[in-house]
Design a protein around this nucleic acid. Structure first.
Lengths: 212, 212
DNA sequence: CTAAAATCTGACCGCACGGCCAAAAAATAG
DNA sequence: CTATTTTTTGGCCGTGCGGTCAGATTTTAG
């Protein structure tokens, strides 16, 4: 590992360094998607990348760092796609709709990445045996949703319900799309998103207008 | 392994055989709940049971058989508790409510068992690397729910929606209770069940009566 | 070109896994 | 009691893991 300077004061890297890291991260994602996190050994990842196992150790501190870079990588792609979408919604209800469709769109386009994330979340444990990303770490994902629901209740758009529970319902429903896309070739993510939007609109709205 | 006769014609077993198998299954559940399926080695399970590792091999064909007996064991306990409850419900809506509260009750009383189930489902792979219990194997669980929704639509109790998607939403929402119970000491399963009942009542009913 | 730094290879280490088995021990039968 | 069967022990096997390293190779700098 180098320790050069760069103008920004950040750790510097060769072009090859960055390219290799990106390649290894991508191969790790592919490998985990195919054989699961548990069986995605450094040897297997290296084989798919066509490189020696030692190269991974050279560019990453260890398997743990590689996995955390994989998580960062996927999370960032999701945030990049979703954040700008959500900012421009006028009402809480519209934000909720966009949240659902935007998430399902992302999962539709990157089902393997999302499946890899959940695989890592449910399996990657620290040395003491505890889950590195457990239910606790959902908080950054859940908090904005909860706040959205609370905002909707304050503004009178939404009925009274437990925002924390509703946030959890929505996240689990969204996350269940990825494995279905991968398992069922004829699964229709867009139809799924429409069902989800309808469900949460009925479940959150305050006044009930007549159906249809 | 013995091959005695028994009056029923079933494979027979010593009392000790059955007791040992039950003890090992229970220890396997505890171990998986504590350290996760992946780290629940035969040696670790044996250590907790206070027996030698070979005993497990003696009473079970291998780790795979042990895991499948664990799954059977937990499934059966759930079915025993839920089936009679659901049979006696008069309407589809009542069955749905009972399904939700009954499931959450069971998870409240056996959160570790349920967490073990999902851990096995997401990690136990056959020799070829495929998940032994994948999304596909949810079908026996989902089918009755789907039929319930379809029955409700036929009878006019429910609005039109995609029964398969709704069934999936409900299952994932229910299953998410177990990890929350284990992770958050002050998580209230009964309140969670009430929120869930309210949500799916609003989401499925045909005519909207005025809220409150 | 040569020298230095960066990168890569392939072999190796210690460890834990599931599975296996000969022999000891315990339970049972005659 | 003895003979037989059932059960348990503890160690061993091959495999694959993450990690390490000396030395080869490639790239970069002068």
């Amino acid at each position: 590992m180098r320790s050069d300077f760069s103008p920004s004061g950040q750790r510097a890297s060769t072009f090859t360094e960055e390219a290799r890291r990106a390649q290894i991260i991508q191969c790790a994602i592919d490998t985990i998607a195919d054989v699961g996190y548990v069986r995605a050994s450094l040897a297997e990842i290296a084989k798919r990348a066509g490189i020696s196992k030692g190269v991974i150790s050279y560019h990453f501190a260890g398997k743990d760092e590689l996995i955390e870079r994989v998580v960062d990588h996927i999370y960032q792609r999701g945030a990049e796609q979703l954040t700008p979408l959500l900012k421009r919604q006028p009402t809480v209800a519209a934000t909720l709709r966009t949240y659902i469709t935007g998430n399902i769109d992302f999962i539709r386009d990157h089902p393997r990445e999302v499946a890899v994330l959940t695989d890592i979340f449910t399996n990657y444990r620290t040395a003491d045996g505890k889950l590195r990303y457990g239910v606790h770490t959902d908080e950054p994902l859940l908090a904005p949703l909860r706040q959205l629901f609370e905002a909707g209740q304050r503004s009178g758009e939404f009925r009274e319900f437990a925002p924390a529970a509703m946030a959890r319902f929505l996240r689990t429903a969204i996350d269940s799309a990825a494995p279905q896309i991968l398992a069922f070739p004829d699964f229709d993510p867009d139809a799924y998103a429409r069902e989800l939007v309808a469900l949460f609109e009925l479940a959150t709205r305050k006044e009930s207008s007549s159906p249809r």
